[in-house]
Nucleic acid binder design. Sequence first.
DNA 1: CCTCGTTTCTACAACGTTGTAGTCAACGTT
DNA 2: AACGTTGACTACAACGTTGTAGAAACGAGG
Lengths: 335, 335
Amino acid sequence: MRNRLKDVAERAGVSVKTVSNVVNGYVHVRPDTRARVEEAISELNYRPNLSARHLRKGRTGVIALAVPELDIPYFAELARYVVTAAADYGWTVLIDQTGGRREQERVVASGITDHLIDGLIFSPLALTAEDLAGLDGTPMVLLGERVDHGPADRVVIDNVTAAREITDHLIQLGRRRIAAIGSQRTDEGASARLRLAGYAEALRAAGLAYDEALVAPAPAWHRADGAAAMRGLLTAGVRPDAVFCFNDTLALGALRALHEAGLRVPEDVAVVGFDDIEDGRFSIPTLSTVAPDKERIAQLAVELLAHRLDGDRAAPAKELSAPYRLEIRESTQAP
Amino acid sequence: MRNRLKDVAERAGVSVKTVSNVVNGYVHVRPDTRARVEEAISELNYRPNLSARHLRKGRTGVIALAVPELDIPYFAELARYVVTAAADYGWTVLIDQTGGRREQERVVASGITDHLIDGLIFSPLALTAEDLAGLDGTPMVLLGERVDHGPADRVVIDNVTAAREITDHLIQLGRRRIAAIGSQRTDEGASARLRLAGYAEALRAAGLAYDEALVAPAPAWHRADGAAAMRGLLTAGVRPDAVFCFNDTLALGALRALHEAGLRVPEDVAVVGFDDIEDGRFSIPTLSTVAPDKERIAQLAVELLAHRLDGDRAAPAKELSAPYRLEIRESTQAP
DNA sequence: CCTCGTTTCTACAACGTTGTAGTCAACGTT
DNA sequence: AACGTTGACTACAACGTTGTAGAAACGAGG
């Protein structure tokens, strides 16, 4: 049986509240009393019951991070930074996988939410602004572009400009037939839409035609999808001299397909990705990419949550932008 | 303000306990009463307060998974399966990163543990059996080989046999100078020790000499360590015709270093890894590896925890073994 | 019609913690 | 000497839930 405040109190010969005061660092406790209580605490190996504390205080000290899939490197890396940033606020992070399924996302956003966690950092794929509108409950910070004018705080990066810049990098290299992999027709692809827009902008600014045949959709953004899309382009007889993949895992798949087709990267085809996952720093060739500042994204998200928890819950939603930079590596530069 | 049982009870004109009974599916409630309560519940959008429920019941419905680092693909993939397996038991999973630091691991094993979670699935790197001995509290399942005869349930795979088999695969290919990357001198490397033992066994069985110069240590098992170790071997003038890396990320780093040195894989050097992470299925070349059944590992761990929670907490520790298989890909077979 | 068992519901206490209000002694001020 | 202030501590209630005990209503068997 676990020990409670009461057990410590009896052993130290004081009231339950005095023990509570010692545990919580209340100042008006005589040094000798404090010492006696602390001794009893360590003798009994007392640990506070968090459920009880939270029932009383109305806060749990736990926040949740909900992402589509943990084994997508981008989300795993992000999760790592969120856990670290949350630790600075004394929060524990509960990580939830939604699989990108709308139903599960709704469960996370409403169900889990209640009373178990103080707040939620949420990277939705399928959820719409309407789904979120009804949720008055738990403070929430959204990551990414999915929900356009939702009722919640958001941390984003400027996808359009970033996509324009990385496409421009390909144009500067003298590439003229630049393919794009990762477009999505459905509502789900807010990031896809923005990155495609940036790609188109860069082409237009350079006086290059936007060619439908060069744009390949990808149902999900896994390696396998990138490989399939690249193979599709090649079999269709399209011969790009560069490819902009909307994330790094797509790009790694594309590298694989190009390799299988006997094409050299970057000599025959230059390849760029988006996200700067660790794999891209060791792939053959290493991958040029847009590197969002994931650490900053995590920090901003946790900060927004902290403000929302301490401050006015009804305040208008804020949107913060995190920086990014281009990482130019072998896949666009001959060694 | 959130609604409580009391609010629902007032609206439905029944007692608090009756509402509680409806929520918990108690059978002896008149259909019309049940309907009235359910209507009130949905009108008020009532959700139980989990802290209160758990305070009362002594269970939280949350288990923790503690891993060294989330952005190591093996752990990310494992985490995914654990979350899925736990969902079958109605458990939420709280994921904790220890960074492999002993201090943090101790905190997780004792501190977080208390009252917030019902049980812990733990993949320790630095913790010893002695560290765990004092923890009477929360039921725990250990993953991997670190703690040799600890007091807790464990799920392992047969590292020695698996390592012997994959080394044997290299020998069958006619390779004779087989290097090993990933050995660790410190206490931390239980998996390293076992895999090295399997490697040595295979050499001995084939009548090959065990050559210290062919065994390269790696402080951690990241891509960068694998690349550094491989470069080290090559600069030292050691010219292996095969390399057994103790995990896949090491192997991906080694592939990179071999590429930079102008050596072809598998023609000049065959490479194998361990873990079967997704990257290895798309790398250039694709990576031969030992594929532990991660899904099964997760299932067994959750099952052990469930038994421990429902059954005898003082029962002797059980150890279960999960299956694995060899995945032979391009890095050991010319296309 | 009475008894007994079942169904349906309720009042109360308890889980372990902390905020509030209070007691009592010691101290400094007038 | 009377007074207010502060320090050190305690009793009590409350957070929202569920187990226990039991009351009231009902039906079946005698």
